[in-house]
Design a protein around this nucleic acid. Structure first.
Lengths: 141, 141
DNA sequence: CTCCTAGTTGGTAACTATTATTATTTGCAA
DNA sequence: TTGCAAATAATAATAGTTACCAACTAGGAG
């Protein structure tokens, strides 16, 4: 059985056709998808699925660590198969997420956090803009 | 005349009582405010002000550089008098924003951006959690 | 294999943060 | 002082997401 489905089962959740579909779509995608994009793609196979089910399960899968959620300022969140802690260059044109293997939560920043006695809940570091391909498309018009 | 009002005038915008109030509230606040908090405070002085006016003017003031806007994942944006480009430790308890004089958009990150031919639109680095005071309040209960 | 039930779903209403619309009002240059 | 572009108040609309609830079902106990 797919290890990501296994993870659901391990955590005491049921393996439903809807959950299979959501994982299937995200595993096949080369970029993180918004809830709406996920819904669109799933509806081609199973038109009766509810958006509520999609949101509910995307969040559940994030909670159990199977997916990760990219929060994007002024835009819908995107979900992808969890590939560990990462930050990205996020393309506003096509939604592609280019990983950057660097986390700013270290060095001087970490010191400042200590100095202020601040208790970190989470952090966000994302760079939005346009990938090479989308820039070419734009100028080609 | 207040230099921030002057800035409005310089850009060809009118100085209205509503705009005076918005700037006044933000200048007196020791932390960035959400649009709603700004509205609440203003309504004590001028109950007839519309939320649309507040959003419209907060955005206008950001555009002309008088205010800056802090985007916060999963929460309402916060506005403050522009103090230049900064990132913050954002307290989820009281909304305080502790400046950190460091921007992660440099060094290796900048190189990666170059390497990928990525065109940056904006970036977003905020750390959410709880400030010392809010942690004490919590444990004191 | 069948039954049982806690977990899950679909459909939809509700919600939050924000923007658009529009008729009315007003700041300010002439 | 007047005229009118700009701005406002009130409210409808929007986007993204969550809450609610009656109906359904996955999967373990028997």
């Amino acid at each position: 059985m797919n290890s990501r489905l296994q993870e659901l089962s391990n955590c005491g959740f049921k393996i439903t056709p809807q959950r299979r579909l959501i994982l299937d779509i995200l595993q096949k995608s080369d970029r993180p998808l918004t809830a709406e994009e996920t819904a669109e793609r799933i509806k081609k196979k199973e038109p009766r699925i509810s958006v509520a089910t999609i949101y509910r399960n995307l969040n559940l899968l994030v909670e159990i660590g199977v997916l990760s959620k990219l929060e994007i300022a002024d835009a819908a969140a995107r979900f992808q198969i969890n590939q560990g802690h990462n930050h990205h260059l996020l393309c506003l044109g096509c939604g592609a997420a280019i990983k950057i293997g660097i986390c700013p939560l270290q060095g001087r920043v970490e010191e400042l956090i200590q100095e202020h006695g601040f208790s970190v809940d989470s952090h966000y570091f994302e760079i939005t803009g346009y990938c090479r391909e989308c820039q070419l498309k734009e100028t080609g018009k």
